[in-house]
Amino acid sequence: MIIKINGKYYKIKKIEKNPNGKYTITTENGKKYEFKNVKIFSEEELK
Score class of each variant (00 low, 15 high):
K13C: 05
E16S: 10
K4E: 13
K47M: 14
N20D: 11
K32Q: 15
F35G: 03
N6W: 13
S42W: 14
L46I: 13
K13I: 14
E28P: 06
E45S: 06
E44A: 05
S42L: 10
K11S: 06
I12P: 02
N6G: 13
S42T: 12
N6M: 09
T27H: 03
K4P: 03
K31T: 11
N18W: 08
K11M: 06
N6K: 13
K47L: 15
F35E: 03
E28I: 13
K8G: 05
F35M: 14
K4T: 06
K22S: 11
E44H: 04
E16Y: 07
G7H: 06
K47N: 15
Y10N: 03
T24K: 05
K39P: 13
K4S: 08
Y9M: 08
P19A: 13
E34I: 14
M1F: 13
F41S: 06
K32P: 01
E43G: 02
I40H: 06
G7I: 02
E45V: 03
L46S: 05
G21R: 02
F35K: 05
N18T: 10
E44S: 06
F41N: 04
E45H: 02
L46M: 10
G21S: 02
Y10R: 04
F35A: 14
E43I: 03
K11E: 05
Y9A: 06
N20M: 06
K39L: 15
K14N: 12
K14W: 10
T24Y: 09
K13L: 14
N29A: 07
G30L: 02
E43D: 07
V38A: 05
G21W: 01
I2S: 12
K14T: 14
E28Y: 14
E16M: 07
K39I: 15
L46F: 14
Y33I: 06
L46V: 08
Y10G: 01
G30P: 00
S42I: 11
Y23V: 04
K11N: 06
I2L: 15
I5L: 08
E44W: 01
K31I: 10
I2E: 04
Y9W: 15
K8T: 11
T27L: 15
I5R: 02
E28T: 10
K8S: 07
F35Y: 10
Y33G: 02
G21V: 00
K32H: 07
V38Q: 05
I12D: 00
G21H: 02
G30A: 01
I25D: 00
L46D: 08
G30H: 02
K11P: 07
G7W: 01
S42D: 11
K47C: 13
T26Y: 10
Y10L: 12
T26I: 13
N37V: 11
L46T: 06
T27I: 15
Y10K: 03
I25A: 02
I2W: 15
N29H: 10
E16L: 07
K32Y: 08
N20L: 05
T27M: 15
S42N: 07
T27V: 12
N18G: 13
I25K: 00
G21L: 02
K22G: 11
I12G: 00
K47W: 03
I2Y: 15
Y9C: 13
Y33V: 06
T24H: 04
K11R: 11
I25E: 00
M1V: 11
I12S: 00
I12M: 02
K13R: 12
G7L: 03
G7N: 11
G7P: 00
V38P: 15
K36M: 11
N6P: 00
E16V: 11
T26N: 02
G7Y: 02
I15T: 01
E44F: 02
I15Y: 05
F35I: 15
I40S: 04
N6A: 13
E16C: 08
M1K: 10
M1L: 15
K31Y: 12
P19T: 13
N18S: 10
K22I: 12
F41Y: 15
M1E: 05
F35H: 03
K14I: 12
I15A: 04
V38C: 15
N6D: 11
K11G: 05
E43Q: 05
Y23K: 01
G21T: 00
N18A: 09
I25R: 00
S42E: 10
E28Q: 14
K13S: 13
N37I: 11
F41V: 07
E28C: 14
E45R: 01
K14D: 10
N29M: 08
M1A: 10
K14P: 00
G30M: 02
K17E: 07
N18H: 10
I3V: 12
K39W: 12
E16A: 06
I12Q: 00
I40D: 06
G7R: 04
I12K: 00
Y33P: 00
N20G: 07
K17Q: 10
I40W: 15
I40P: 07
Y23G: 00
E34P: 03
L46W: 10
N29F: 09
K8E: 08
E45D: 11
Y10D: 02
N29I: 05
N6V: 04
K17I: 14
E16K: 04
F41I: 08
K31E: 12
N18F: 08
I15S: 01
N29L: 07
E43T: 02
I3M: 07
N37Y: 15
S42V: 06
M1G: 10
I15R: 00
V38S: 03
K13M: 12
N37L: 08
G7K: 07
K32S: 10
Y10T: 06
K13D: 09
I25T: 00
V38D: 07
F35S: 07
P19D: 12
E44Q: 04
N29K: 08
T26S: 03
V38H: 06
I2N: 04
K31P: 03
I25V: 14
P19E: 10
K22E: 11
I2G: 04
I2C: 12
G30S: 02
S42P: 06
T27K: 01
K8M: 10
N29C: 14
L46Y: 08
K17H: 10
K11Q: 05
K13G: 06
G21F: 01
I3N: 00
L46C: 15
I15W: 06
E16P: 00
E43M: 02
I5W: 05
N29Q: 11
I12W: 01
Y10W: 12
E34Y: 14
K8Y: 10
T24S: 12
I5H: 05
Y9Q: 04
Y33E: 01
I2H: 14
Y9K: 04
N20A: 07
K13V: 12
I5E: 01
K36P: 08
F41R: 03
E43A: 02
T24P: 00
K8F: 11
E44N: 04
E45N: 04
F35P: 02
E44K: 02
I40E: 10
K8P: 00
K32L: 09
I2D: 02
E44C: 05
K32N: 07
